[in-house]
Design a protein around this nucleic acid. Structure first.
Length: 569
RNA sequence: UGUCCGAUAGUGUAAUGGUAACACGUCUGAUUUUGGUUCAGAAGAGUCUAGGUUCGAGCCCUAGUCGGACAACCA
């Protein structure tokens, strides 16, 4: 079910998500810019796990390349050794791949270009466009001014080319302490754009890099690495999120001063989803402080979390298509994501019966010790999925919510004196209930069955309002069921009273673990197998699942118009 | 008091000077051995405001309003 398809089959061509980026690209192609070539890149920093917002970017970048017969590179933007780690590199590779995209042999690292970028820096120094500055971080910040107030020029701004070159080379040689000096671009301290006020290009960091080890002790800043990397790779369209819009003049400045190939940076609005947070910093905090079990906790909006939750790559790609690409800030209703996975799983997931809040039901008219094999359809949406047998016995479990002693008129399920069909089995009638004398809790429901109504029989045409799922009390297997709800209680977790923190809005009931029973056909279930538990929702086998002791995650519940109409009252 | 960006049904996204469409959501009804699916249908915006250009403006221009981004040796 999750087999990887070639990238060429997964998206692009047939779907036409017309958006402003594609409009721009088509114009570039028409004008013969870059010889009509389209080359994009997905440039994550390996300092955390990818989330659904990255998925949107991945689909955009790889999808765009596919659509215009171009290429898309995977490039790790690893210019800050103190935050980055190989663990993240590996997870990013896995996630992009799992989503269904292939970067072939074009896996790059900004750190691959450190030497080249260093030479770019020397070139700038030689041109008199960069200088070594000895000010402290605090002093630089102070002299930067504010958006409405111009900055002041550094006293080191007019060092000679020779002195700058000498100092920069000694920075590289490790002669100076961390933070002692930086290389700065010489642009305009009174520019209305803060990023043009002599931005930092290089800083000294005496930390081993996950790829280059101790080879370097100076590292380029984002602004002096990203555009250069794009240029080196021949990226034609460098797609990024809105917050980099103000960086674009600097991006262009560097390219122009360096006189190298000029990619075009295009910005789009990042994805936001209701009831979740989408920043690596916050997600990292949730992981580090054990608010969740890890980056792949099924409640996390990470790709690995969604995967473990039971989402399919197809559903996520489709979601990325549906939400569209634009420049205005947006918040997508999490219901749309749920729609996408239901739509996909409805077609693909086999049905199975499982009871997650069991109450015993005894068919008093059915003989003891007899096991009747009922025929069940695996997937009504897919005739090729075939059928299976489900064991029916005198004692069964049904869902506690499927019985009411004193039901409202619109309740179609079981109640004293009422009839329902047991799916794939008989119509039964409730005769009595047994209660715990102490708690008044119903412990057993006693019913009789009508043997003439066996499912599938030509003469079993009697109609009843309700059909219940069930499981044999003796032939089913016990399972751990993990029921997930949204991680945060409020639509916007950031929307908290002054001085409070988004973590205050964490939903204490986002995970409920229950013991349930499932039909024995799933005894040999494998990790990530997906099912629809009839009438309940879509479930997927968790990595914690063991043979004989299955564990299922609820991916998403089925739509429930009954529950909804009740909730509205 | 700065610069940049944005503003279209509840939420998103289209409409590229010709009279607002699609998806999700909502609401009906039909079918259904899943209160699922499917099918049929409905309601819901006159495009932030004010001017202007034009035969004609959601699209172009101007001003304003509101929202966002920008002052990390992060990316």
């Amino acid at each position: 079910m999750n087999e990887l398809k070639p990238a060429s089959e997964v998206t692009g061509e047939n779907k036409t998500p017309t958006n402003f980026i594609h409009t721009m690209i088509e114009e570039d192609i028409r004008n013969g810019k870059n010889g009509g070539r389209v080359h994009t890149r997905f440039p994550p920093e390996p300092n955390g796990y990818l989330h659904i917002g990255h998925a949107k970017s991945i689909c955009l970048n790889f999808g765009t390349a596919l659509k215009y017969n171009g290429k898309c590179n995977l490039r790790f933007d690893d210019t800050n050794p103190v935050k980055e780690d190989v663990e993240y590199v590996d997870s990013i590779r896995d996630d992009v791949h799992w989503l269904g995209f292939d970067w072939e042999d074009r896996e790059f690292f900004a750190s691959d270009y450190f030497q080249q970028i260093y030479e770019f820096a020397e070139k700038l120094i030689l041109k008199g466009k960069a200088y070594v500055c000895d000010l402290t971080a605090e002093q630089i910040a102070e002299q930067k001014g504010s958006p409405t107030r111009p900055g002041q020029e550094s006293p080191y701004r007019n060092r000679s080319v020779e002195e700058n070159l000498d100092l920069f080379r000694r920075m590289k040689a490790g002669e100076f302490a961390e933070g002692a000096r930086v290389l700065r671009a010489k642009i305009d301290m009174s520019s209305p754009n803060m990023h043009l006020r002599d931005p930092l290009l290089y800083r000294i960091i005496h930390t081993d890099h996950h790829r280059t080890g101790n080879q370097w002790c100076i590292y380029p800043m984002y602004d002096f690495a990203h555009g250069q990397s794009d240029s080196i790779e021949g990226i034609t369209h460098s797609i990024c999120t809105l917050e980099f819009e103000v960086h674009r003049p600097l991006y262009d400045w560097c390219i122009r001063e360096l006189e190298i190939f000029a990619p075009q940076q295009i910005e789009f609005a990042r994805l936001n989803i209701t009831y979740t947070v989408m920043s690596k910093r916050k997600l990292l905090e949730l992981v580090k402080n054990d608010y969740v079990s890890g980056w792949d906790d099924p409640r996390m909006p990470t790709i690995s979390g969604l995967r473990r939750r039971g989402y399919t790559p197809e559903s996520i790609r489709n979601f990325a298509d549906i939400v569209g690409v634009a420049k205005r800030e947006n918040v997508i209703d999490v219901g749309l994501l749920e729609f996408c996975i239901r739509e996909d799983l409805n077609k693909r997931a086999n049905r199975v019966m499982g009871v997650i809040n069991p109450v015993k039901l005894v068919i008093t008219s059915f003989p003891e010790g007899v096991v009747e094999e009922m025929n069940a359809v695996n997937n009504p949406e897919d005739p090729d999925a075939g059928t299976r047998k489900v064991a029916f016995t005198r004692e069964l479990y049904i869902e506690r919510e499927d019985f009411m002693e004193d039901p409202p008129s619109k309740f179609f399920r079981l109640a004293p004196g009422r009839e329902v069909r047991l799916k794939y089995a008989y119509i039964i009638k409730c005769e009595s209930v047994v209660k715990d004398p102490l708690t008044d809790e119903i412990t057993e429901i006693h019913c009789t069955h009508d043997p003439e109504t066996l499912s599938g029989r030509s003469d079993s045409t009697r109609k009843v309002k309700g059909t219940l799922h069930w499981v044999s009390a003796t032939e089913s297997i016990e399972a751990e069921i993990r029921l997930y709800d949204r991680l945060f209680m409020g639509e916007d977790p950031e929307d908290v009273p002054e001085g409070e923190d988004y973590k205050k809005t964490l939903n204490p009931d986002s995970l409920k673990v229950v013991k349930g029973y499932v039909e024995s056909s799933v005894a040999n279930t494998q990790t990530l197998d997906k099912y629809q538990f009839e009438r309940l929702g879509y479930f997927c086998t968790d990595i914690d699942s063991k043979p004989g002791k299955p564990v299922f995650n609820r991916t998403v519940a089925l739509k429930d118009s009954w529950a909804k109409s009740n909730a509205n009252k």
